[in-house]
């Protein structure tokens, strides 16, 4: 009996260790990024663009916001409408099954493959060049399946009595969706959108050959003008020999993590309000 108890305790300790093993790198990573970005933190980080390997991050910050904002403007309506189709109009049937399946498969397609696809289709074949729109559409292709699936799952969890009550009162299915079920499912839908947003914020691979890179703040046109973004700075500037470049890389990493953390905190508040945490993690 004592041996069995001891083994039970040992396994408990091992399980705790598994959690700690993951915790240590995360803490180390956060501490490293915060400490090493300190020299670069100043107001000019936000107000001046990169000049060579120095300067600020204005262009990259604005570029990231533009790319992600555009991507969301495309993917939110498409994703939510797709989710409504799956969750309300066609719960069964061939097309619904195919859509659900393709959304799941699309979430699994590596982002670099999407980037290459975006390059071939938009940058070369459509002749958009490295541009904000090519980058944003590529990001949107990544984001849509997340939003479709989380919208559908949130709609599935809406109490059927609500839907039936509305239908029984004579409202059409369209009205019921717009007035009743979408509202009831809102926290879950917004959570799915925010998760897609945080994934898009941190992406690099799909943008390398669609958005390009620019040291200037985003141009007012969406085609034929490359855009800078934060993840690019992290990737390239860390390999520059100058200290100023490396500080910028850390500062960009810090900003990215703060943005993602901010979105995650929002998600947690929404989830606790929605009462369930059964959401797709990427």
């Amino acid at each position: 009996m004592r041996a069995r108890r001891a083994r039970d305790r040992l396994m408990g300790v091992l399980a705790l260790l598994a959690a700690l093993v993951v915790l240590v790198p995360l803490v180390d990573l956060v501490v490293m990024v915060v400490i090493r970005s300190l020299p670069a933190l100043s107001l000019s980080l936000f107000t001046s663009p990169t000049q060579g390997a120095a300067g600020g991050l204005e262009n990259a910050i604005l570029g990231t916001l533009l790319l992600v904002g555009l991507a969301m403007a495309i993917s939110v309506p498409v994703g939510v409408a797709g989710g409504v189709y799956l969750g309300e109009f066609a719960r069964k049937g061939r097309l619904a099954g195919a859509v659900r399946f393709s959304a799941d498969v699309l979430t699994g397609v590596p982002s670099i493959v999407l980037g290459y696809f975006g390059y071939v289709l938009m940058v070369v074949d459509l002749g958009w060049g490295f541009s904000a729109l090519a980058g944003a559409v590529t990001l949107a292709i990544m984001a849509v399946p997340y939003i479709v699936r989380s919208t559908q799952m949130s709609l599935d969890r809406v109490d059927p009595a609500l839907r039936e009550a509305s239908l029984a009162l004579g409202a059409g299915l369209g009205t019921t969706v717009a007035r009743v079920t979408l509202r009831a499912a809102r926290p879950g839908i917004v959570t799915g959108i925010l998760i897609a947003l945080s994934v898009a914020l941190g992406e690099t691979a799909p943008l390398l050959y669609t958005a390009g890179w620019s040291s200037y703040p985003p141009a007012p046109h969406l085609l034929h003008a490359p855009v800078g973004y934060l993840t690019y700075v992290v990737w390239t500037f860390i390999n520059e020999p100058m200290a100023s470049a490396q500080h910028l890389a850390y500062a960009a990493a810090l900003l990215l993590m703060l943005l993602v953390l901010g979105v995650n905190v929002l998600v947690r508040r929404l989830v606790s309000r929605a009462g369930r945490s059964e959401l797709p993690i990427r």
């Binding site: 993951v22 915790l23 990024v33 945080s198 690099t204 992290v234 860390i238 990215l256 993602v260 990427r282």
Partner: peptide
């Protein structure tokens, strides 16, 4: 707390992992 940390881990951009990888790992 642990599940929050694990979720945070999922949110760290892959370039930042790469950064940590180059400098520390």
């Amino acid at each position: 707390a642990v599940s929050f940390v694990v979720e945070l881990l999922a949110g760290v951009p892959s370039v930042v992992y790469g950064l940590w990888g180059i400098i520390v790992l």
